[in-house]
């Protein structure tokens, strides 16, 4: 039978975890395919998740492709489909199709230091790279993470970040001061300037709200990072995931297919349409 690119595979939710509760709730899901479908992907690729009756949403895969047992997604509750996902429980079935997009060129980064810079839910797509880099640690130089959220309650992967501190420097921040907060207070781009990652043999990978990305890139440039040393991901509204439905393009690039990962050298050539 011909492969139908629009037909999702059924996947069972095997684990859920509340990362953030409240108005900007974030939940992490682990899924397993109901029929044992193969799903090989690269770090930074996305999957189109279905809640039948509500529709589809494109979500980045936050688990490492080296872990084959499950797929992990961390999802901000923001609209119709994501709200329905948040209402789902262990054992419920969703649809998954993909993987989509180009992914991070990790092989090209061998031997280099990697500095991850994330904001809010933007840690989710980075998480796949962080986990993979740890599993392939010998292939890379020094690893470090600069991550921030609006408040301490908005920080995702709290337990995992605590564990991560044993394996790489982790610099956390929140936007405004809180009584028990001992780390940096201020926006993520400011923390980047504060922590001054060295551009020498380093790749900076950033993901977060568009305004954060914009200033992180500006500050990385101030720290003498070259355009080719900066990688980010772009998000646009998507429906098909395969470069046909026509809405996620920036210039002649379809983010779903040709993105979502761009080096700043490539992205700055495209029109500002995201």
């Amino acid at each position: 039978m011909e492969l139908n690119v629009y037909t999702p595979q059924l996947a069972k939710i095997v684990q859920t975890k509340d990362e953030v509760v409240g108005a900007r709730a974030i939940k992490t899901f682990r899924t397993e395919f109901a029929n044992g479908a193969r799903f090989d992907y690269r770090c930074g690729q996305c999957a189109m998740l279905s809640v039948f009756g509500k529709g589809e949403a494109m979500i980045s895969i936050s688990s490492s492709p080296l872990i084959k047992d499950y797929l992990q997604f961390s999802i901000l509750r923001t609209g119709r489909v994501t709200a329905a996902l948040h209402d789902m429980e262990v054992g419920d079935l969703i649809g998954v199709r993909g993987p989509y997009g180009n992914g991070f060129p990790m092989d090209a980064w061998q031997g280099k230091n990697l500095v991850f810079i994330g904001g809010g839910i933007g840690l989710a797509p980075l998480w796949s790279v962080v986990q993979t880099a740890l599993l392939r640690k010998s292939e890379f130089g020094a690893l470090s993470l600069i991550y921030g959220a609006r408040t301490s309650k908005d920080i995702v992967f709290k337990d995992e970040l605590a564990d991560l501190k044993g394996q790489m420097p982790v610099h956390l921040s929140i936007d405004v001061a809180e009584p028990d907060w001992k780390e940096f207070v201020g926006f993520v781009p400011t923390n980047v300037l504060e922590k001054k990652p060295s551009p020498a043999n380093t790749i900076a990978i950033t993901c977060g709200p568009p305004i954060m990305i914009k200033f992180v890139i500006k500050n990385l440039k101030d720290l003498k990072f070259e355009d080719e040393q900066i990688y980010t991901t772009v998000e646009n509204k998507m429906k098909c995931g395969i470069g046909k439905c026509g809405r996620c393009n920036i210039g002649f690039h379809y983010v779903c297919k040709d993105g979502p990962v761009y080096s700043w050298a490539d992205l700055k050539k495209l029109p500002q349409e995201y």
């Binding site: 108005a23 923001t78 609209g79 709200a83 329905a84």
Partner: peptide, 9 residues
Amino acid sequence: TTADEKAQR
């Protein structure tokens, strides 16, 4: 706009 407002439309 809250997620609820959008989801419940």
